[in-house]
Design a protein around this nucleic acid. Structure first.
Length: 254
DNA sequence: ATGTCGCGTGTGACGCGA
């Protein structure tokens, strides 16, 4: 089985790339972030025509997530149960007996921002809910744009990022807290090229200079850990004429 | 270091978020 995550930075703009990508990468499930559209605008027909099922949850202008799958997702949940949120950031469903969760974690903007307070609260809410999800679903995958670079090796220039969001001790403690629930970072189960990133700023030739961060992650539950055979970042998609600032990440489970 | 995108407003430059 293959599962993937991709922050598309507007599904309106990126839909043709998503359709092409699915044709080239026939995954069992793909979660999208930053669809940036209300539910009435969601391109269900086009995704259906590509041979996929889809569940979606969006809002105007910002955020928005979707769960695309070969077989229909069941027991679908939108946002974190028990955490009141007016932003569309999470979708979960069961696909082929595996609980699949797609999340667009808050950015946080700056450490002294109200948005950072929200990010911390969202992460607290996620951890509490995820603990219950893991009790109910031994086989679980949570993936998405975490907006956290877990370690310095996930940052192109750790010194330049000191004092910024995505790399702070608080955020990294939250990432570790998720792992402590019984999850593992699938990408780090394998030897990977140094300076492997999943996001590059559109500005300042970020991609061309490989000035990026690894902030898009796939965490798998301990019950699945032994079956993971590969995890890769599809950097090629960042070379498209009109790319998202994020590349897809794909995990293969035997 | 903030040079790029995408969106919404409201017709076109600008503010916002990333």
């Amino acid at each position: 089985m293959k599962f993937a995550t991709w922050n598309v930075n507007s599904l309106t703009v990126r839909l043709p790339q998503v359709i092409d990508w699915l044709a080239a990468n026939p995954v069992d499930a793909l979660v999208l972030q930053e669809t940036k559209m209300t539910d009435d605008k969601f391109p269900t027909m086009e995704i259906g025509a590509a041979g996929y099922q889809v569940q979606w949850f969006g809002q105007k202008t910002y955020n928005g997530v979707a769960l695309i799958s070969k077989t229909p997702a069941t027991d679908v949940v939108k946002n974190i149960t028990g955490f009141a949120d007016d932003q569309a950031r999470l979708i979960a469903g069961t696909v082929n007996g595996i609980r699949v969760i797609g999340g667009y974690f808050p950015n946080g903007q700056a450490l002294d921002s109200d948005k950072f307070v929200y990010k911390m609260a969202w992460l607290d809410g996620l951890r509490a809910w995820l603990a219950n999800e893991l009790k109910a679903h031994e086989k679980l995958v949570i993936m998405g744009d975490f907006n956290i670079a877990p370690e310095d090796r996930d940052v192109h220039d750790p010194a330049a990022w000191e004092g910024m969001t995505h790399v702070s001790p608080q955020e990294r403690a939250h990432f570790q807290g998720l792992l402590d629930l019984g999850l593992v970072d699938a990408y780090r189960l394998f030897e990977q090229p140094p300076k492997s990133f999943s996001w590059w700023d559109y500005r300042m030739l970020g991609f061309q200079k490989n000035k990026g961060l690894r902030i898009d992650h796939i965490l798998v539950s301990n019950a699945l850990k032994g079956s993971v055979t590969a995890c890769v970042i599809d950097r090629q998609m960042r070379k498209n004429p009109q790319p998202s600032d994020h590349a897809p990440v794909i995990v293969t489970i035997a």
